[in-house]
Every structure is written in structure tokens, then in C-alpha cells.
Amino acid sequence: MPQHEKINYVEFPSQDLAATKAFFHRAFGWSFVDYGPEYAAFSNEGLDGGFFKSGLASRTDNGGSLLVFYSDDLEGTLEKVQEAGGRIVKPIFSFPGGRRFHFTEPGGNELAVWGPDEA
């Protein structure tokens, strides 16, 4: 149930909606509901949201917000991202609290995945 004044939904641009959907399905097992040819929604993925057809993409170098996934197996997730067509733009690096990497999906958006420090 939505909570008053809490983040409820997120929408991202995609320069290639079909490729974005295929990437997230292959890398993370997401499914989508299409609402016309220029919008696809996802749900039950930690936060519900959607992708809309756009000539733009969200990247940190142009001031875009960064959506960060969590992984118990950072190297395994990195491999899945690459196999699904993601491009690594910042290889795994340490930061206070863990390690992470950044990638772009085929629709152009930059995202990141973080996990705990190596044991």
C-alpha cells in the first residue's frame, strides 16, 4: 500500500524501449506491462516504475539521479549485467560501506549495483 509522502514510483527515459525491456528481463528477470508503444511499467522490483520512450537518458555526468541495486554477489551480478548487454562504465570499486560498479543499459541510462566488502 502506498505510504503518505514516501517515494512510490520511478520513471526513466529510454532511448530504445525494446532494448531496455530485453536487458532488464535478461539480467534481472523483470517483466513489463506495455501501455502503448512508448511506455512500459514494471512492478515488484523493490520499487514500482516504468520506462518511457525518449531521446534522452539519465546519467550522473549530466546530473541524472542514480538508481542503485543491492547484490549479495557483486561479481555475479556484474557478469549478468554484461551478458545481458550492459556496458560497465565504472568497474567495481570500494567506497565507505562496501563496493559497487556502475553500468549503462541499452536504453542509455546509468545505474549502479552495490554489495558488501569482500569477506
Rank of each mutant, 00 (worst) to 15 (best):
A119G: 11
G115W: 03
G97F: 02
H4G: 00
F69C: 06
Q15T: 13
N8C: 02
N44V: 00
S58W: 01
A27G: 07
E110F: 07
L111Q: 08
S94K: 12
W114L: 11
K21N: 06
F93P: 00
K6P: 00
G63Y: 10
L67I: 10
D117A: 04
Y39E: 07
G55C: 00
G97T: 00
G64H: 12
R100D: 12
F28P: 04
Y39P: 05
F23G: 09
K53V: 06
E5Y: 12
P13S: 09
A22F: 11
L47F: 10
P2K: 14
P91I: 03
N109G: 05
R59M: 07
Q3N: 11
V33D: 13
L67D: 00
D72A: 14
P91V: 05
T77A: 09
G49T: 01
K6Q: 12
G97N: 03
D16G: 07
H25R: 12
I92H: 01
Y9F: 15
E118H: 05
T77F: 06
D72I: 00
F42M: 02
D48I: 02
K6W: 09
P37E: 14
V68N: 15
G50I: 14
F103S: 05
L74V: 05
A19S: 13
F69I: 07
Y39A: 09
H4L: 13
T60I: 14
I92D: 01
P106M: 12
G29A: 06
G50W: 08
V81F: 11
I88W: 04
G98N: 09
T104M: 12
I88K: 02
A112F: 12
E83N: 15
G86P: 07
E105F: 06
L78T: 03
Y9P: 04
S43H: 12
I88S: 03
Y39D: 00
A119T: 05
A22T: 15
W114H: 12
F32P: 00
Q15K: 14
I88V: 14
T77N: 12
S14R: 01
N8W: 00
S65T: 13
S31I: 05
A22E: 15
G46I: 08
F95R: 11
L17E: 02
N109T: 04
G76S: 02
A112R: 07
D117S: 08
S94I: 05
L47A: 12
A18M: 04
H4R: 14
F32M: 00
L78P: 01
F12P: 08
P96G: 09
R100W: 11
R26V: 14
V113Q: 01
L66C: 11
L47M: 14
D72W: 01
L111W: 03
D34P: 04
R87A: 13
S54D: 09
P91S: 13
A57L: 04
G55E: 13
I92T: 04
P116N: 13
F24V: 03
P37L: 03
F23L: 10
T104P: 07
G55S: 13
E118K: 06
L66R: 11
F103M: 04
G86C: 08
A41D: 15
H102N: 14
E110T: 04
M1E: 10
